[in-house]
Design a protein around this nucleic acid. Structure first.
Lengths: 353, 353
DNA sequence: TCTATCTGGTCAATCGGTTTAGCAGGTCGA
DNA sequence: TCGACCTGCTAAACCGATTGACCAGATAGA
């Protein structure tokens, strides 16, 4: 079954291919009378004309495709909302999306970019599944947008979550409830991931602004950022002497918070009565499913994905700041894991017992 | 900056574009001496030749792209492993992947297929994020492979999880431990999703083969298939009179199992000492993170994704069965939520107390 | 009546490769 | 010496659209 092309339509309609092209591409400024227009359209539909985007792209040098190269797609499932957003905008604008995941392999990455360019994509999004500083592969076309990643060298528009602001909101929430001894369960790695560092800075900043001296004993590293790691780390804090034990925990992410819940339960501490907990990520299937539901900070994956694509397609101006980085707000999602500290803790002067 | 093409290389190398094409496409049967070959390669690299896949595809009618149209990408995060698998095979074979999610909208679906065909994809994968029977959109090219979905009309190769076999393995595990009163927390919807039906059939089959008469009171529908729904449904079972109360729960999925854990905890039942639980899905971030870790049945998303792509590319023969549906095994993942029933329950004759 | 303009199109080049047919010149066997 | 064959390479058609230049005929204005 041969594909039917523009020349088949032209033959059947008794006009030239030029006319068919003019009609089908909807160039209204071309002076084609309505009668001809309709005939061409009718015949095209009748004989099942199907356009060939390759030919069109070859000639026009625009393919209406964009490439998304990402380090992973499956490791942090909730981050697929970024991909979803990119794809949504693509569809809305009549674009098709090439998806490549490179597994963070520089060689694969370079080859993928090359392949995407060979396919004449109209633009590239370079995404990471969690906020990172990256050294982009060579050969990225101008206008490439970075998503959940900042290029070490700058020079490209980029969008990342406002981890700092999110942490500030989270810790302020705890302070507002009257907490003074607030633990931080931090992610650990070498070097310290940028998200962890920014959240930690937000944490200490709020403590200082509230007149609380950060207690180094209350900041512990969670080696794997998992629930198991959270159990262990939170356990260390909860086993501190009563006058040092935190009344609230700010957790690097929801998985760690899940571990903190478990550590609290093992010690017969009830959340939020005996211990308040705030997470980060608003990971569906965890945050809302925990008992009690977890107050946490949402990572704006969908919004970031849209932003990246909209900047790429020129639907929205690129940031004009020096580094070209847009910070996307991370809203606090209030659920039920935060309450004022136990009554005997509420005096501003901490006297153990 | 003009792109450098084959004719630029030809000019610099002092040969014709035919020769360059012959050399660069690695056609060894063409009689080109090594010296010329090397010169062309060298010059191509020097002046930064970048192939144009559109032009190549236009001529050869093969684009080395494939399209993946899926109903969602983000709702069931763990299922992105299917996309990952498809993408992995694509990369291995030098293909680029178009990703489209349609949100189950038939119109969007049809338009997407059309757009993908316009871009001359070499093949199509039609995927769902959970096992469904679907009526495929019109115009699917022959050879389209269905992933985690069976076309109602047949006629296409398809791969789906062996839900029945998985359920059999799960319930046999419980029976082998000595359980006789095993509850099933089923998914509910209209019509009953095929996965739920198949798992239920596996469940009753094992009961019967073990000489246990299925007790209709022990099968309860969970309206939303979520943790909250699981709490409620499991609660109903656990509040049954002691001589009817199940000693083990087979849950439609891990989220429901999460709810069952919580219901058990509220009743001071310890898992697995007082109640055994088996889930389904092996949803990372839940199954392994629960306390105790959940014994469950894994959904072979990655394997299904690979299978689909390998069949599509002809790397593996399509199934020869009448319906063309491949059942992918769902292995039981043993963790710590299953144990023999409490001692007083172990007598084959059930006497309440 | 003689241009100028408008109408409704068409011609042919072009995008950047692939591929078939074939050419020029040399070698080789008869 | 002649034809067959080989080597190394090229010419040109082709894939399916887009698009700027242009054309024939009709109408209008001077």
């Amino acid at each position: 079954m041969k594909r039917v092309g523009i020349r088949d339509v032209a033959r059947e309609a008794g006009v030239s291919t030029s006319t068919v092209s003019l009609v089908l591409s909807g160039k209204t400024q071309a002076r084609i009378p309505t009668a001809t227009r309709e005939r061409v359209h009718r015949i095209a539909a009748e004989i099942g004309y199907a356009p060939n985007s390759l030919a069109r792209g070859l000639r026009t040098r625009r393919t209406h495709t964009i490439g998304l190269v990402s380090d992973q797609i499956a490791t942090t499932p909730y981050a697929v909302h970024m991909i979803e957003a990119v794809q949504d905008v693509a569809r809305e604008q009549g674009f098709l999306l090439f998806l490549v995941n490179t597994g963070s392999d520089a060689e694969v990455e370079a080859a993928s970019v090359e392949a995407l360019l060979a396919h004449q994509v109209d633009g590239l999004v370079y995404a990471c599944m969690w906020h990172q500083v990256v050294t982009p592969p060579p050969g990225l076309p101008e206008g490439t947008v970075f998503l959940d990643a900042r290029p070490a060298s700058g020079g490209f528009p980029a969008v990342v979550p406002d981890d700092h602001g999110g942490a500030v909101a989270a810790v302020r929430e705890l302070v507002a409830q009257g907490h003074r001894r607030i633990g931080y369960l931090a992610a650990d790695a070498h070097p310290l991931p940028i998200a962890s560092r920014l959240r930690w800075e937000g944490y200490t900043e709020v403590l200082r602004e509230s007149g609380i001296t950060p207690d180094p004993r209350l900041c512990v590293r969670v080696p794997s950022s998992t629930a198991a790691g959270g159990v262990e780390a939170a356990g260390r804090l909860l086993d501190l002497p009563a006058d040092a034990r935190p009344t609230a925990l700010f957790c690097f992410n929801d998985r760690v918070a899940m571990g903190a819940y478990r550590a609290a339960r093992h010690r017969a501490l009830e959340i939020p009565r005996d211990l308040s907990v705030v997470g980060f990520d608003d990971q569906e299937l965890i945050a809302a499913a925990l008992d009690p539901p977890l107050t946490t900070v949402a990572l704006p994956h969908y919004a970031m994905g849209r932003w990246a694509m909209e900047v790429l397609l020129g639907l929205r101006p690129a940031p004009t700041t020096a580094d070209g980085v847009e910070l996307m707000p991370c809203p606090l999602v209030r659920r039920e894991s935060v309450a004022p500290p136990p009554a005997h803790e509420r005096t501003p002067t901490d006297d153990g017992d």
